[in-house]
Structures are given as C-alpha cells and as structure tokens.
Design a protein around this nucleic acid. Structure first.
Lengths: 380, 380
DNA sequence: CAACGCTATTAACGCGAGTTAATAAGTGTG
DNA sequence: CACACTTATTAACTCGCGTTAATAGCGTTG
C-alpha cells in the first residue's frame, strides 16, 4: 500500500463542542472564554478548565466557520504588477507576510504579473465577493497616468473593496498610499558622495526620449539635483550617463557607460546610479577600460540587490525600506477593515537607508556599518 | 469627508435565499441547480429561472460558508525555501497560480524564506488545522539529506497533510515529487554545442571542495558527461571552470573565468555553464580579455533568466519547465485531496527546452526559434 | 422574607451554504 | 380506479462557530 497522503480519511477534527463536554460546560462558555469577550465575567476555575481542555484536545478553531458568522475572510489579497522575480517584490511581500501572520490573517495571491495590463482584476474582485479576502494590497506601477492603475483603482472603489497602494503612484488624493521616499534616496546617495569630497558627481539614469519614465526615477533625480544644489553645484549634461530605453538591466548600464566613455566626456569622479543593475554594468565597463573603482570613480547604486554585496568591489547602495512598506501597508489595511483607520487618507513616505561598502571609497570605518551578509544555497 | 474605503458599511451581500425568492423556488433548488448535482433532475424552465435570477442579482456563493459544510478550504498553501527574488521562484508560482485559479482554488502564502532553516512550518500546519488550506506545495532545497527538508516532510506526514514536493529532493520513495529533468538539461546543452561541431566543450560549475553541492548541479554535470561520452569524448579537468563556493552569482563566474584564463589552460571552444549567472560572468571576463563570443568561445547557460535574452551577444540557455512544474504539482495535489490521485506515488521528471540565441553561434536559422521577448516597466 | 441585584452560565438562534429524506404532482399499468 | 413508479421540488437537518437574551444561583437590602 502506498504511503501517499490522500484526502478523504482525515481524522475527525476536534470542535468547540468536544472541548465543551471535556470541560463539562456548554459550547457557549467555550466560545466566550476562548475569545476573551469583554463584559462577560467567568469563574476563574471555569476558565482554567476550558483552557486546559482546549489545550489537551489540541483544539484549533475552524476559520471558515468563524468567517460565516463574522463576515470576515481573515485574509488579504495581493495583486502585483512588479517584476515577480525581483528582489524588490520579494522584500515587499516578505514584509506583508510577517504583518498578516502577526494578525492571524492569511495572505492570498490574487494576481501577479510582470505588466499591469496582464493582471486580471476580476479574479481579485471575485475573491472578495466570495468572502475569502477582506481587502487588497496593490503593488502597481509608478508610471504616472497609467491606465491600468486607474482602472484597478476604479474597480476596487466601485466594489467598495478596502485597498492600499504600495509604491504605486495615484493622482487621486483619497487613496491610501505607502511609498518609498525616492527623493530622499537620490539625496542621501549624492550627499554621501559629496561628503567624501567629490565635486564632479554624475548620475546614471534611464534615457527615455528626453524625459524620465517612472515617478520614482524622476524623484531620485530630483534628490540628486537637490543635494548638488545644496553644495553649490549644478547638474551637467556631460556628467549624465543615459542608458537606452527599456528594461533596467546590467547590460544596459554596461553599454551606456561604454558609449559615455567613447564620447570623450571627461570622467566624473563619482557616479550615482538609480539602479544597482546600472551600477554593476558601469563597474564591468570600467574594469574593461582599466578604470579603478573607487579610486578613479566612486559608485553608489540603488536597491541593494543581492549582487551589490557580492560584487568586487562591493557596491555601496541605497536600500528601499520595502519590508517596512509591506508591513505598514498591511497594518493600515487591517485598520481600515476594522473601521479603525485614520479619517484622512494616508500618504506615507518612508525614508531609505544607505549601505556603505567599498565602491564609494568611504573609509574602512564606515565600510562595515551598513553591510549585511545574505547567503543561500542557490540550487533550484 | 474622506472617500477612503472603510469596512463596516458593506452593502448586504446577496445570498442563495435571495436568489430563491427571486426565482420563486426554494433555497435547496437553487443550491442543487447551481451546483449541477448529478442524479437530480430538474425542469429546464426551473433551471433557467434560477440561473437567470442568480445572474441578475449578481449572486456569488460564499466560500467560507461552503467550506463549513464540505470541510474543504478551497485553497492550497505554499512554502518555499527558494530565493524569493529569483526568476525561478517566480515562474514556478506563476504556474501554480494559473492552476489553482483554474480549479477555483486560492493560493495562500504560508511561508517564504531564502533558507529552509528560516521556514516556520508551524504556521503552515496551523493554516491546515484551521481549515484554510487543503494541502501544501513545497519548494524546498535539492540538497540531499537536508535536515530541514526531512523535518518538514515528517511534520506534514504526521499531520496527514497532503503535499507535493517541487524540485526538492527527498530520498523517501513514498513522496509525490515533481522535478526538472536536470540530467536532460545538461545533456541537451552539451549536445547542442557538439552538434555545432565543437570538440573541446568545457563546463562551468560551482566548486565545493571537490564535490558538487546540489543534486541538480550533479545531474546537470552527469548530463554533460553523458553527451560527451556519446560523442566519443571524455570530460577533462583542464576544460572545467570551477567557481568559488557560495551563492551562485555573476561575479563568481567572472572571477572564476579570470582565474581560469590566468592558469594558462588552453581555451575550450565551447562552454556549458550550469547557471546563466556564471555564463554572464564568463562573458564579461571574456570581453575584458578580448575573447570573442561566440567566435572564440561559444557559451550555453542555464535557467533562461531575463538577462539572458538581453545580453549582447544574447545568451543561449536551457530553460527549466517551471510554470509546468507548478501546474503539475497543483493538479496532482488537487487530485490527492479529492482522493482521485494515482495509487502509486508520483515521481515526475519534466524535460527542459533550449533557447537558442547568439552566444552559442548557431546559424541565423535557429536563432529566432527559441527566442522570446520579455519587456517590463522596471520602475519599482 | 420578599424583592432586588449581581454573577456565572447556557439555551436558542443565526450565519450561508450543502445534503438527504420526504412530499407532491404526473404517468402509466392492471 | 387503485396501484406502483417516475419526475420535480422542498422541508428539515447539518457543518462549526459567534452572539444575545434568558435562566439559575446566591448574597444583599429595605
């Protein structure tokens, strides 16, 4: 006979009735005691007996049954248009997972796709109507005026589904939004380089026919400019490395910096890249040309990807507070669901932190401070 | 007044009773008709009326209520010890998501962590005992004899929770396992290079004090050897590029290939890398040394990461059937839960496919065939 | 000592569904 | 016309739990 775990057999689960008879009380008593209902007093001895019986029998309340009565699903839904294989996405839902679990809630994957247009909002609505989820955390695009984002928002509002946007720009002031402070990100990265004495601080950004694509990139750029200005400097075209349009990846950074070097522009002494991918590409291109990092060129990246700490030299990087964002989003949403949320819509901007490593050329003193090791088996 | 969506208000949901009165029948009739129960015949006119009323009122059955009666949670749990920010993880749960949705099931995140030791199996068990999930898909490590994996399996079996392992090696024959055919992966990659006329085909693997770390790497290596042998060749030490121990990433491949080149070994004409990360690192190191790809060195990677199609030259790569793995795992698990699974434990090995691009130097004819474009906003 | 008030507990109902045994209506047979 | 036999429908029960109004016990007070 096979040992394979089949359904169907299932030893009968212990219910609150079982606890009741074991403790010699009524089922109501069990429910009231175990839920610590206020305004009801109980004999301490009875409480003890109930709790003891519950523990002894290994009683676990059945959540769906509770849901029927309380009309809550005890779970939140997640929809995401972020790159599903990205560290950014991973860190965010790790935070969400921690927060939902702490609240005794479940986290249900409603729809995950690399592009917003591919997301099927209907299944999310359906989950809500079925009573399986009580609200939705949405990880959408920061592209301004994105039609898909607008459509999702309108649908959720129309169905009266509580929701929170995470790093998803919405021009509507009534929406709860939890976001990275991308201005501050650009600012602290640039400030770090300026504080190290650099005066020719360049930036590596994604080129997009003259304008920046996403709100987050725009804000980081503004932070960069602000830090420069504060130091009495101005941003210059010949200190700006622009990549090709399209996805952000290592190779685009690599190619862009090669083009930059061939253009004959004088080398900046420091460079802030709005992505670790770009920073990495720049680093490889620099090595190829014999440019020393951080000697000839100091580099600060953004997002603190795994590769950042493992590169040689290791990469100084701005880390987004994504776990925190996930947690805050979930906690806010849970309050909204219970009707305990703030009366005003929340617009929260959470600051980033800097992980100082070798590539920015800070002294050995600081080098350890922000560092952290992430090891893995890496064997899927 | 704020427009923020608060809980509490919730327009009353339409229930099966509402449908019943609207259709002028009893609630039982509604239930029987809508669930298409076999063995019960109904007047076609009645059926029509019920369906019409249900549609008109926008009736959606309440899943938790159904759960109470049927004793099923209509959801599967996911635990994963894979790198949460990896493409591999993403592709797998995309497949799972598709399959669960098709079955009307939910997918609940039980625990996700980068390392197996960090996974809290208790919360998963708890979810099962609470009646929220009916089974578990486990994405664990392929490291043989991994104590965490063993512990999880024993716990799940002890609690009689139906489960399926995906790419997680278990030495126990009674466990359902869905796995990538990694032997075949190494074989087709090597065969591809041999078919292009190469005779000096090397391999880039992760060094680990003489032995290979994970089962998947070992199998890929065996596939490589098998293809060589079939062609009358033998694996040679001086054609093997070994990286340092630790996480698989671009820089380890880069460093390893630089060391290899400095060792004075004669250059292989083709190289199979057991990871796209390694392949990418090799490519950057090669560029640095002026080695032309694929002219002087043809390269095939593994895993078909995003960067593979975007590198220049683009990277030929072996793609794991991860979506398929996810789907198969879910479908098998659903059958087990319904007691309809095969009587024997399932040990499924799904073959990989080759994405032929520029780096292997195949003719333009094949070059397009396996290619696919993945674009994204990349703006989190 | 009856009336009152308080504490501790429970019976009874409801949530929204699925399931089954029983009923009512219709059809055909002897 | 009474009988069995379908066919169509429903009343009644069940699942596991939360909630509330009602009850029993008991000490206090006028």
């Amino acid at each position: 006979m096979s040992n394979v775990s089949q359904g169907g057999f299932k030893r009968r689960k212990v219910t609150s009735s079982d606890v009741a008879v074991a403790a010699g009380v009524s089922r109501s008593t069990v429910s009231l005691v175990l839920n610590r209902v206020e305004g009801v007093t109980f004999n301490p001895e009875t409480v003890r007996r109930v709790q003891e019986a519950a523990k002894r029998l290994g009683y676990v309340p059945n959540v769906p049954a509770r849901s029927v009565m309380t009309r809550k699903g005890y779970a939140l839904g997640l929809i995401s248009a972020w790159e599903p294989g990205s560290t950014l996405f991973a860190r965010t839902f790790q935070g969400m997972l921690a927060a939902t679990r702490a609240a005794g809630y479940g986290l249900t994957l409603c729809d995950i796709a690399g592009r917003a247009e591919q997301i099927n909002i209907d299944s999310t609505v359906s989950f809500y109507q079925q009573g399986r989820i009580d609200g939705v955390v949405a990880l959408l695009s920061t592209l301004p005026e994105n039609p898909a984002t607008v459509r999702f928002r309108e649908t959720l509002e129309g169905e009266k589904i509580p929701f929170v946007f995470v790093n998803s720009h919405s021009d509507v002031p009534t929406v709860d939004e939890i976001r990275t402070d991308n201005f501050q990100a650009g600012y602290i990265a640039t400030k770090h380089l300026l504080d190290l004495g650099h005066r020719r601080v360049g930036i590596c950004v994604r080129g997009a026919s003259g304008r920046f694509l996403s709100r987050s990139e725009t804000e980081r750029y503004r932070g960069y400019v602000a830090a420069l200005t504060e130091a009495g400097l101005v941003p210059k075209e010949n200190l700006t490395v622009k990549t090709e349009e399209g996805p952000i990846n290592v190779d685009r950074g690599y190619q862009a910096f090669k083009v930059f070097l061939n253009s004959g522009c004088e080398l900046p002494s420091a460079l802030y890249a709005i992505s670790d991918h770009f920073a990495t590409g720049v680093l490889y291109a620099a090595k190829e040309k014999g440019i020393s990092i951080p000697g000839d060129l100091a580099i600060v990246g953004t997002d603190d990807l795994e590769l950042a700490s493992q590169l040689r030299p290791s990469l100084t990087s701005v880390r987004q507070p994504l776990q925190e964002l996930g947690e805050e989003a979930v906690n806010l949403l849970l309050k909204r669901i219970d009707g305990k949320g703030p009366s005003q819509p929340v617009k929260l901007h959470v600051p980033c932190s800097l992980r100082v490593r070798q590539s920015s050329g800070a002294g050995a003193l600081n080098a350890v401070q922000g560092d952290h090791v992430e090891s893995r088996g890496g064997d899927e």
